[in-house]
Nucleic acid binder design. Structure first.
Lengths: 230, 230
DNA sequence: ACCTGAACACCGTTCAAGT
DNA sequence: ACCTGAACACCGTTCAAGT
């Protein structure tokens, strides 16, 4: 009766009596599960439990954990690109687009750690790159410099994203920061004059401020390059 | 007979009949083992095998894998700081110091991935920070701006380090790059005009070039800040 | 005092078996 | 056609037992 033969109930039904899964449901469940709010581990066992099937059943829809990971990552990138609205000023627009990617991944920290250094080559990532390149071309950069600048900006943002996400997932790492301030304050001023004197301002910089400052410094340098070609 | 009581042979000897271990031997073995050349996994089982003892025996010298990791990381940072020789030009010196850290960690990729975002608060890291802060103060930056610049530079370098190390450890990730060029070249020029046109220059940027360019852009922006305070 | 070996709760993945 | 369940080779860590 169903118009889609893939939807027909054939073979062994799931325990729950639910219709068979499809790939998109699997990916969506994985995206959902890895959100900061739910914070479920991205494992076949956990995903299987959520979908009410044996973990091994998921191999019908994804060929490996790696393929699952890239598909989930691309969903996150796609959302960052889709929600972006250009205001017309390339500098602010580029900052906003890159920050959307950063925030999107940070809401799925385990995916960020595992996939931020990967290239998915899937539709979300392609649209994202096209948007960002367009902004750099608008800024007046020639193709080769726009390419180099895109790579410097995007790779730096992705590296920072995995960096922050890794910290967020690790309680020991989160605790490092407070202990660091104490260590700097207690450092011997004779051996560590700068470190001990600057302890407060040094350890007072939050990662969010550090990320924003880095992105701002980089875009400033790109702007300089755009206005002084050659 | 030994002058050091900790060296006396008491209790059950190791299988090998060797004298008991000490903490420094354990750390040194772990540093050695994780080099790119040896590429042994940093696990208690692997480290135990190398030292000829049961993995559980190592808990006498380190309280956890986390403590082991931080000690190994600090050894790598210490080596980067110790081999540094200042030439007197802050910009080149700072670049060299940060690149030494980057290269040192990249020679121990598994440690880089796990520890680059951590703060060890151990001697190597303290010396490294003191050196880098000194160079920024020499550049003429006031304390607060030197702190912010140090964090932006050091955290960016560490993030990039983990980013590259992660790629190096993952064969699938290494393969992404070549497949990416193909995907960009084959992209529909109507939907992805920039991406398809710039495929060559975009995917032609190596990670090493990207890292160098990023560091150069950042230091340029810091220099700008130093010469135009406020 | 120092090391051993089994145990526990995890992981991705494979494969034969059920319906 | 689709799902199940056991199995395999890994992890960090604990703990009672050996010498």
């Amino acid at each position: 009766m169903s118009a889609d033969p893939a939807r027909q109930r054939r073979g062994r039904p799931a325990k729950s009596g639910a219709p068979p899964l499809d790939r998109e449901q699997v990916i969506r469940a994985a995206v959902d599960m890895t959100s900061r709010e739910q914070a479920q581990p991205l494992t076949f066992r956990s995903l299987g439990k959520r979908l009410g099937v044996d973990p091994a059943a998921l191999y019908r829809y994804v060929s490996s954990k790696d393929e699952l990971l890239l598909a989930v990552a691309d969903g996150i990138i796609a959302e960052a690109a889709e929600g972006f609205v250009a205001a017309g000023a390339w500098r602010e627009d580029l900052t906003e687009l890159l920050c959307r990617l950063h925030r999107g991944y940070l809401d799925h920290p385990e995916v960020a750690v595992a996939a931020a250094a990967r290239i998915t080559r899937l539709p979300g990532e392609m649209r994202f790159a096209e948007l960002a390149l367009g902004l750099l071309i608008d800024a007046g950069l020639p193709d080769v410099e726009a390419s180099a600048s895109y790579r410097a900006l995007a790779d730096t943002v992705l590296a920072w994203t995995a960096f922050r996400a890794g910290l967020e997932l690790n309680a020991a790492a989160e605790a490092d920061h407070e202990a660091w301030e104490v260590a700097c304050r207690q450092a011997d001023p004779a051996a560590f004059p700068h470190l001990s004197r600057m302890a407060g301002s040094l350890t007072g910089v939050t990662l969010d401020e550090g990320f924003r400052a880095t992105l701002d410094l980089l875009i400033t340098a790109v702007e300089l390059r755009a206005s002084n070609p050659g």
